[in-house]
Structure formats: C-alpha cells, structure tokens
Design a protein around this nucleic acid. Sequence first.
DNA 1: TCGCCTCCTTGATCCATGTCAAGGCGCCGC
DNA 2: GCGGCGCCTTGACATGGATCAAGGAGGCGA
Lengths: 226, 226
Amino acid sequence: MDHPRVPFLKKVALYSGLPAASLTRIAEVAGLQRFSNHGFLFREGEEPDFIYSFIEGGIVLVGGADGHEAVIEFFGPGESVLLPAAILGLPYLVSARATSDGQALLVPASKLRQFIEDDVAVAAQCARVLSRHWRGLISQIKEIKTHGAAERLAHFLISQADKVTGSATLILPGMKKEVATRLGIKPETLSRTLKKLREYGVESEGDSIRIASLERLSALVTSIPG
Amino acid sequence: MDHPRVPFLKKVALYSGLPAASLTRIAEVAGLQRFSNHGFLFREGEEPDFIYSFIEGGIVLVGGADGHEAVIEFFGPGESVLLPAAILGLPYLVSARATSDGQALLVPASKLRQFIEDDVAVAAQCARVLSRHWRGLISQIKEIKTHGAAERLAHFLISQADKVTGSATLILPGMKKEVATRLGIKPETLSRTLKKLREYGVESEGDSIRIASLERLSALVTSIPG
DNA sequence: TCGCCTCCTTGATCCATGTCAAGGCGCCGC
DNA sequence: GCGGCGCCTTGACATGGATCAAGGAGGCGA
C-alpha cells in the first residue's frame, strides 16, 4: 500500500498530480511540522533547507526590514512556498510568518533538487506551479502600477471570495495590517478605504467581510482595464 | 554535426546548459525572427504560440491599457519571455514591444510543452529559469512597496550598470517613458528625480547615464534595508 | 472584575507624486 | 533651412496616501 504520508501529499497542488512512484519517493523524505500563529517558519536571508507546503493554516510572505515590511502574498492550504529559493539553492528573499496555527509538509530542498534532475514528472510539475505563481506576481505588479488603493482593495476582496457572482462573505487571510501591506498601503489607509467601499456594498466587521454584490464591486475595478 | 541553429540556442540562458540531444531536438523546431523597434511581438490576451528568446536587441513587457500602461521589465539578449503562459497554455498577461531592432529565437509553445513532459533536462532547466524570474519579480514588488521614487531609480540604475564599484556609464534599456513606468512613476517624475540624483553623482544626457560612484549611489538605497 | 496590551479606527495635517499646460530640443522629410 | 512631430523637461497646482496623534474595542492574565 501507499506510504502513510502520501494522502497528505495529495492535498498539495505541487504534488497531487504526480504518478504514484514519484509520490512515494517524495513521501519517504517528507515530514510534517506544526506551526503556531505569528511564528516565523523561516526568515529572509537564510539558506533554504525545505520546501513548505501547507496542509492546514497559512502564512504570509514578507520582505524587507521591520517598519518597512512588504507583504508579498498570503498562502494557505494546498499551496507551497519557496520553490525558487530551494531550486536554485539561494538565500530566501522573504520571511514567512504564520497567520494561524497549522501544519506544513516539509520536503528537504536537496532532495527536491535531486528529484528535479531525475524525474520528469516532478520537474514538469515544478515548472507548472512556478508558472502559475509567476502570473500571480505579474498581476500584482500590473495592479500596483496602474490602480489606486480602492481598486486594488476591491480586486483583492473579489479574489478572496469563493464565488464570482452574487453576494459573498469572506474572512481576511491575515491581520488588517498585513492585508494593507499586501496592497501596498498603510493600515490607516486600508481602514478609510474600506469605509469608502461601503457605498459599493462592502460591509466589514472584524476580519469578516460581506460583499453585497460581486458584480457591483467588479464594476469599480474594471472601470479601468488591465 | 550539430543542427545549424544550435549555436543560436547556446546564446540563450534557457537552453545553453542543455545536453546536445535536447539541444538538437529543440533546434529542429525553432526558428529565427527579425523584429523592428517599437513593433509588438505579441499582445496581452493572445494565446501563446511561441517562447521568445532574444539573440539580439530587446523588448519591454507591458501590461494594462493604453494610458495606463505598466511596464513589467526589460529583456535583452540571452533572455526569454513568456515561458509561463506557454507552459500553461493560458493567454498572455502582457504585451511585448521592441525597444530596438533585433532578432528572436522562437520555439513553438506546443513543442516546448511536449519536451517538458518528456525530457528531464528541459523541464529542470525551465524550473530553474522560472525560479530566477520569480526572484526578480519578488525584488521588484518589495521595492515598490517599501522604497520611494528616488531610491527605486537609484537601485534601477545600479542594476543596469555592469560593475559594482567605481564609476559607470550606461544606456537606458528603453525610452524614458518606459523606464518611468517600469519604476512605477510618471515621466515627469522621472525627469525631476533624475535631476535630484545629480547631487549623488548621476549625470544624464539623452539615454546615457553616468554614475560617478556606485558606492555613493548605493548608500542612498541601502539607507533603508530590504 | 480590572487593567493592560494589541489591533484597529478616526481626525488633522503634510508631502510625494500625479496632473495639466507650456515650451524646448532633436530628428526627419521636404 | 524650414516646419512639424515625438520625446522630454519645466513650472504651477491638485490630490491620494502617509504621517502624527489620539482614542476605542476586544482579549487575556492576575
């Protein structure tokens, strides 16, 4: 039968599509690790020892010094981080701080590098996952450079919703402070912008947001194409 | 002997490290294409037919609508663009406009996808190149979110220089308008910021920039870590 | 229950950058 | 050489978002 960790691998996009043989090989070198809210999984500048994939809970990738933090993106269950640093064996450019308690699947970077050399399925899958991340980052850069704070926030909220039409309720993936930085604005500005969005049917209470009509909110964003 | 296009492949980082067998297979489906300044190689929203690698001359990747353009990055000889879109078979998120006359090596996206499935060397190499791009984008996002216009410009100029110490002269990789958008500012602001940098030893004349001391300029940037 | 701490909100003010408008300057065709 | 056209620069002004400063509100330990 399968290795006992294979079921965990299947929950992770990076691994889920791989053939059984590859899965087993990876499962043999993988390990599970619990982490708790606000803790750092690793810090900018360190050498990569592992690829982190999240089974439960999530983290936020932040770069830059304290007081000048730049939140890159939030990651949650099924997603993986730091493939690039691990593949190249270069120091992390960012730190990862947990946004909740959770559990991550760790695969040693050296092993993964080796699998990439030997196993087409693994290498191809890495290329695909990296490609998807790349597109996410490009979208973010385009957005920062062309849209104002309100539009960016609206777009972010829409992307966090699990639907595309009608109304939706969502939970912010981290503290408001972190969300603000992810959007490239300050917490104060987020607070005010959120208030402005009320006239577009966005109600917020704590970290839960209710969008009355995703279509109406989209109209705000798409008024400028991009 | 080798396929006649193999020497061209060797000039491209994506292909240069590949074993001879892989190179030949790629060379057989690759083609050369001339392009001229200001022309579009492809536009946002189109379906990817090729991977473009530059042998000579360069392009700029831009996203967003006219008047709200976001320049993502400049690319020159030896570099490749649009691997991600081609690998995933999804529409381009950006357009490519030539910043000079030049010549590109085109590999059909469908063929490359197939090589990635079959050939570990190709797949692994794609993963590595994507990883490097990823790191470049992360740096850019960190920078936009944490540094002001002057620091970003200074850093950009330093990265364009071929040295790390002493003085340097460089040619901007595109029109000032494009450089401005790459930095997330307007042409007017670039003009003014460039003037401010004179007191840090930066002289500009047309599209050529002279930096008196890279160390001095670095000091401006690293005053805030990140 | 109280007090403190952290996170968030609100208001007042400031400043970097955007916007609008007017030239300058080089390049090219005639 | 002249006119026209892009590209860039400059100046005056507008504004979005940052900053500074002051509370509120919930959580948590004693």
